[in-house]
Amino acid sequence: MNKKAIAKEEILNAYRFRHATKEFDPNKTIPADDFQFILETGRLSPSSFGMEPWRFIVVQNEKLRDKIKNTSWGAAGKLPEASHFVMILARTHLDTRFDSAYLKEQFSDFPEDRLSQYLGMIEQFQKHDFKLLDQERFLNDWAIRQTYIPLANMMTAAAEIGIDSCPIEGFNVERMNELLAEEGLLEDGHFTISVMVAFGYRKKEPQPKTRRPYDDVVKWIE
């Protein structure tokens, strides 16, 4: 097999290996360099317009983990057993609106005329194409959807080096945001909880993976 074929098979094997791990081995810890690699794949992930509307909070503090476990029914079985636990936050409309200070800083390396043009294109997209400015919730939800790109990339990267993961949506958004606000992690409404993900090593082997048939999932128009 040539290098390309080997790389393709290795990637597919990572997808076959990955599963939503429900029980982690509390006696196994992810090496620091391996977890840094996982976070870097998240940081390098693509985002619409290059906004990067996210923040990754790595929660290793036992007291905060306990608070999260008591606030999230979905995390109850993963904490404190998971080696590493990440809360993915999304930037709110305060940062993602076309005229926000954050976007002006994000694209500050643009020449002034190009910056004005680019922000104008984002304004058109938000106002008219996706109508994200009709309600604050729309823009916030759009940013939350963006965070699932680094989430997927981090889980896949982890699987490629033999590390397990489990994405977690099992929580009440308002209660979790209240907890995070109390901990000073939402920066006065500039962030909101999006999704959480636990990383570690499986305690037992999962059931065989099942997926819908290829022809039902993929449709070609020629």
Rank of each mutant, 00 (worst) to 15 (best):
F24C: 05
P31A: 10
F49G: 10
F49P: 07
S48K: 07
N13T: 14
W54F: 12
Q60Y: 02
T29I: 14
R43E: 04
W54S: 05
T29G: 06
A14R: 07
D33V: 09
P46N: 12
F37K: 14
T41K: 13
L12E: 11
D25G: 10
A14I: 05
P26I: 03
A32L: 12
G50E: 12
L44F: 01
K22T: 09
D34M: 07
R18A: 15
R43G: 00
F37R: 14
Q60M: 08
D25K: 09
F17T: 05
A14G: 09
P26Y: 05
R16S: 13
R55N: 12
T29R: 14
E23A: 14
L39H: 04
A20D: 12
P53S: 11
I57M: 15
M51D: 01
F24L: 06
R16C: 08
K22Y: 05
T21S: 10
K22R: 14
T21N: 09
L39D: 04
F56D: 07
I38E: 05
R18I: 07
E40N: 11
Q60V: 03
M51R: 13
K28D: 00
T41I: 02
R55W: 03
Q36P: 00
S47I: 01
L12M: 14
R43L: 08
N13L: 13
R16M: 11
P26Q: 00
I11F: 15
D25R: 02
S48G: 14
T29S: 14
Q36T: 12
P46S: 15
T29F: 09
E40H: 09
Q60I: 01
K28I: 05
T41E: 08
K28C: 06
G42R: 02
N13D: 14
D25F: 01
V58T: 12
M51W: 03
I30M: 01
A14Q: 02
I30H: 01
K22F: 00
A32Q: 14
E40T: 03
S48A: 15
M51P: 03
Q36E: 13
Y15I: 13
P46D: 11
I38F: 05
H19C: 07
N27Y: 08
Y15C: 14
G42Q: 02
D25W: 05
Q60N: 15
V59H: 11
S48P: 06
H19K: 08
L12I: 11
R55G: 01
S47V: 00
N27R: 12
K28S: 06
